[in-house]
Design a protein around this nucleic acid. Structure first.
Lengths: 122, 122, 122, 122
DNA sequence: GTGGTCTAGACCACC
DNA sequence: GTGGTCTAGACCACC
């Protein structure tokens, strides 16, 4: 990510999702300190106000906590990160199923796709 | 489909994709006559010129053929439709793989997703 | 010729030209009898009135002469046919020159065209 | 050119041919920028949409390339322009041959035409 | 009825 | 400034 935001959706929400994905991926482990609002704003090439709004939203959801004068930290609650992973994985799965249905693939063709996928992610 | 087009991409190209999907799904079998430009334009709530442009693009790609005064027909070439199905299936697969990777799922979790998918599409 | 007339120009004039070309080509030699208006009209798939008008124009120009009750005959005057041949040949030549100029061909390229032509008409 | 289009053929295709002829003649050298769609439309007295369609066709054929916000440029590929020159020259030649044959000229008469032509284009 | 072309004019993205 | 897309509506050719 960087500069490439979907202009049709609020940027701060896209940042919220990106931060969650990074935590889910293990890039930001539970309890770790996040880059400061200013650093992250520079890295993602957005206005610090926008980044601040994203951090506030993440805090509102309990995904991060901010300690005055110390910085922002990913929640220690592994459960929260796991739930987010689950939510994202489910969305990805449902989308795949919907698209496959839309193509009207036959069972054999779906099987082949699944085999390809299993190999690719191995 | 109807009225719901992604405003960031040309409508006529989205129509091209939609028509291909319908052919791939068997909704428009090889050789069948398509609705006229005007009918389809009304059904999808776009200007006839836009629909005409979509049909012209489909003809340029050899996916349909148009006979002046008679109408437009899906290609008899099953190969062409099959290739399109393959192309779409591959795109769906690759996107799924990319998204799964972005989440950094563990092999077991991927397995569970694949099992869910197999059940869902059955 | 037959049925294929340029719809933007009077048909009777196109017939006049066609008859002249046939005479020029030797298909209708000097003094020969032409098919009757009705026959020719049927052959060229036009209305007899249109053919009649064409014959009248040809007579007006002295290219053919019509004897009441006997039919129409190409002029005996070879000079007249030769002049027509010259006129047509000149037109063809000038058009070629104009087109070649429009392409801005180099002398060598023109030479090659002329060589091709000499071979083709041999 | 300007205002004078053959009404029996699509204007946009006649423009395509005209632009190619200009490139072939060296009026638009390889790589040069073409007048903008709007300028050219005004110069040829057609609607900008019609000109746009002509440019799109030229781009589709690889004869020009268009960069959004910058303009349209004749291909750098001299080969492409040369091929077009060849194609046009061949058409001119074949038409001349056909017309000469239609007149049934004798070899000597053809020779004289060719001599005239050689002098005229010198 | 069918599609093909053209004009007129708007609005947008990219530069 | 540039081109790209879309709508609206006319007129034509082919069937």
């Amino acid at each position: 990510m960087s500069t490439e935001f979907d202009p049709t959706r609020p940027i701060y929400l896209q940042i919220v999702e990106e931060v969650k994905k990074r935590a889910v991926r293990g890039q930001y482990p539970p309890g770790c300190q996040l880059p400061s609002v200013r650093e992250m704003a520079k890295a993602m090439e957005v206005n610090p106000n926008t980044m601040s709004r994203a951090y506030m939203e993440l805090e509102r959801e309990g995904f991060i906590s901010t300690r005055r004068g110390q910085g922002s930290f990913v929640t220690e609650e592994v459960r929260q990160v796991n739930e987010e992973r689950q939510r994202l994985a489910t969305a990805v799965r449902d989308r795949f199923v919907a698209e496959v249905r839309e193509l009207g693939l036959e069972p054999g063709q779906v099987e082949r796709l699944l085999r390809d996928i299993r190999e690719a992610v191995r």
